[in-house]
């Protein structure tokens, strides 16, 4: 890890005053230290926002939830209001990484972490995501890579929390010296086709200060499940977030979200259409899982994901609807 200056900040305005000349924000520091230890990121100044107390905590408002960006994944997982009304978010934060990392990692940093691709995350490979002209995953090992939107850079979206927040129609609050703006999660991530090096629309002089979640409609039920190679903890090979707006057993509206399917966390309108206006049954849940794979383009080694995602989606729909318990074969 290279040497750097650590600018300790106690206020938001103090931190904003430091965001120039390539200074990089550090909160929990988990993904940043990982990238720095690997030589992928070499910032000479870290803006330490970890101790800004006003940016941490979960607040219930009339409109929904406001979560400070420095709130840890463990704090979100254990929050009674999140557990009661935003089960998908509690599930997602509670199954991210390891217990130790959930104690350190902040939700802001979780949303801003870099994609998963072992070529990108090795400093031996000068790839597209590092501004070079070649992707090594197409001809190399690609079993963990994307099955959708994968023609430019097939790295996968890393964040479980983003799966939940997309399903909940959440937004992030971005703050700069000029003021605040709110960006919906669906518009927050930049597709690699647009620019493989840019992960989000956040500007260098902006700080992600909060996550804002609208109050779910009455009758909403939700769940998230993640599948990987280990049961104790793992990155997702397939994961599913499901939000169902129910009227009795009829689903008025559904959000079906996949994380490890594509470079940018995605909803599946085709899967959602299989549930809208219908009862939740094994049959409709299976049909939704199948519909979600329409248009999938697996690479040479990740065809299994086209079989795994429908199962993840089917079981998570039934979990959200209260018709099936948590899958013992899922991670965590």
């Amino acid at each position: 890890m290279n040497q750097f200056i650590l600018a300790d900040c106690t206020t938001e305005s103090g931190a904003l005053s430091q965001l120039h000349d390539g200074a990089v924000v550090k909160a929990g520091g988990v993904d940043l230290l990982d990238l720095m230890k690997s030589g992928i990121a070499t910032p000479t100044k870290l803006v330490n926002i970890r101790n800004i107390s006003g940016m941490r905590g979960i607040h219930e408002t009339a409109q929904g939830l406001n979560i400070g960006a420095l709130t840890t994944l463990a704090e979100i997982e254990e929050d009674p209001a999140v557990k009661a009304h935003y089960a998908i978010l509690s599930d997602a934060c509670g199954h991210a990484a390891t217990p130790q990392i959930r104690n350190m990692a902040t939700v802001g940093g979780n949303l801003l972490q870099q994609n998963r691709c072992w070529y990108f995350r090795s400093d031996d490979f000068a790839c597209l995501k590092k501004g070079k002209d070649m992707c090594f995953a197409f001809d190399g090992l690609n079993q963990y890579h994307a099955i959708f939107d994968n023609t430019t850079c097939p790295s996968v979206a890393p964040s479980s929390a983003a799966v939940a927040l997309l399903g909940l129609n959440a937004s992030v609050e971005l703050t700069s010296a000029k003021g605040k703006r709110t960006v919906a999660i669906k518009d927050f991530y930049v597709h690699p086709d647009v620019n493989p090096m840019t992960r989000t629309v956040i500007a260098p002089d902006e700080l992600l200060t909060a996550v804002v979640i609208p109050k779910p409609a009455s009758g909403t039920r939700s769940a998230y499940q993640k599948y990987g190679e280990k049961r104790s903890y793992d990155w997702a090979t397939a994961d599913a977030g499901v939000v169902l707006e129910m009227d009795g057993n009829i689903c008025r509206k559904a959000a079906i979200v996949m994380g490890a399917a594509s470079p940018v966390v995605m909803r599946s309108p085709k899967a959602e259409a299989m549930l809208a206006g219908k009862p939740i049954t094994e049959e409709t849940a299976r049909a939704a899982g199948k519909a979600a794979m329409e248009g999938a383009q697996p690479l040479s080694m990740n065809g299994y994901k086209v079989q795994l995602f429908p199962v993840a989606i089917y079981r998570t729909i039934l979990l959200a609807a209260g018709q099936m318990g948590r899958d013992p074969s899922a991670v965590g």
Binding site: G39, I40, K130, G131, M197
Partner: peptide, 11 residues
């Protein structure tokens, strides 16, 4: 081949 993240300016 060493690949540093471009766009990170030297401070």
């Amino acid at each position: 081949g060493t690949a540093l993240l471009e766009g990170v300016q030297v401070f």
